[in-house]
Structures are given as C-alpha cells and as structure tokens.
C-alpha cells in the first residue's frame, strides 16, 4: 500500500496545530512540576512502519535506559501515543515532585502514568479543538521500564504499513530532563487527517 506524502502546506498546517496543542500540554506540565518548560518545534512526517523503531531511537539521546508509557486514542482518528522518559528525566521529575530521589518503583510508575496522561490529554484536546474532533483515549500503561530504547518497539508492534509520526519534545530549564511524546496514526487516519488539514487550509 502506498501513501501519498502530505503536501508542504498540509505538513505546515499539521505542524502548526501540533505546536498549539503542544503549548497547552507544556503549560500543564509546567503547572504540575512548577517549572518552566522549554518547547521545541514539533516534527511531523509519514514513515513506513518498519522505520518507526529507528525514528524513535534517533529522537532519544540518552537511549540506554528509558521508561515508556503507552496510550491508545480513538474516534474517527485513531492511533497510539508513547511518552518516553529517560532515566534522568524520571529522577528529575521525582525530585521536582518533592520525593528527593527516594521514590520507590510503584510511586515512580504512578508519577510517570500521571504525567503521560496529562500530556496526552492536553495534546489530544488541543488537536481535537482545532480539527473539530473529540478524542477518546485509554488509560496509560507502562510499556517498558528502564530498558534500552532499541528494545521498546519492534517492527511488529504496530501492525500497520505506514504511520503518521508526530514528535513533540519537552525539556526543563537547567535540568537534564527531557521527555518525548510521540503520536502514531495508521493509514486511514493519515487520510482523514489530510482531509481535516485541507479544510483548515481552505478556510483562508
């Protein structure tokens, strides 16, 4: 199955609506941790599913030890979100929440699930508002815990041929903390998203 790439205008529109959604998610994270969150430009592209694990590896710099929370979202658009924390990120987050590095495994998992849920909820709401869709989404679960990033996903994990790969990064000022939010959507959602983007582009 072949998928037509997004046009430059479609890509630009998707990147900008993602940017707005990311801003809302970043603000929620800032509120939770009481710090300033540094945002960077989101990246959007269509990839063959086989190359998703590689793309994820490229994105994460401290790749030897990551923890990943996974959530699914659905409605007419569907897909998966992964929120990836490196080891340093988990520790920073625990410190900021007042745990002084003394967080046990369960409490740390709970914190990761909470943060994932907040980020994913805010991003989906932000996107949904702009493309006039309400997303449903599942509760997060820990997909991988303290493992090398190259073991997180295999080529079989998604079972699609192509994926829309949306990447958003959050870092905290003066700390090593980085967390990555990835949204992945399958073929039919790529096409539905294309229609939504065209609608936005036609409106001006």
């Amino acid at each position: 199955m072949s998928i037509e790439p997004y046009s430059e205008d479609q890509r630009d529109a998707l990147q900008e609506i993602t940017n707005i959604a990311m801003g809302q998610a970043g603000s929620s994270l800032a509120q939770l941790l009481d710090v300033f969150v540094v945002l960077s430009v989101p990246r959007v592209r269509i990839v063959e599913v086989d190359s998703v694990p590689e793309s994820v590896e490229e994105m994460v710099e401290e790749a030897d030890c990551v923890t990943v929370a996974r959530q699914a979202f659905y409605n007419n658009l569907r897909g998966e979100t992964l929120v990836i924390f490196d080891h340093r990120g988990c520790k920073d987050m625990a410190d900021l929440m007042g745990h002084d590095g003394s967080l046990d495994e369960n409490a740390e998992e709970e914190l990761i699930l909470d943060v994932s849920n907040i980020l994913v909820g805010a991003v989906l709401n932000g996107l949904g508002e702009q493309i006039e869709t309400d997303f449903g989404f599942t509760a997060p679960n820990i997909m991988a815990r303290s493992v090398p990033v190259d073991t997180v996903l295999s080529k079989e994990t998604l079972g699609w041929s192509h994926a829309l790969f949306i990447e958003v990064n959050f870092s905290l000022e003066d700390r090593g903390f980085k967390c990555h939010l990835i949204m992945l959507m399958p073929e039919e959602s790529i096409e539905l998203m294309r229609q939504s983007l065209d609608k936005i582009l036609e409106s001006f």
Partner: peptide, 12 residues
C-alpha cells in the same frame, strides 16, 4: 504571538 501559554513565557 505564541502557542507557549505558560504564564512564565509571557513574563519572560
């Protein structure tokens, strides 16, 4: 004109 809606972003 920004999507960064943290109050701190505006202050800075």
């Amino acid at each position: 004109v920004s999507a960064d809606v943290q109050p701190e972003a505006e202050i800075r």
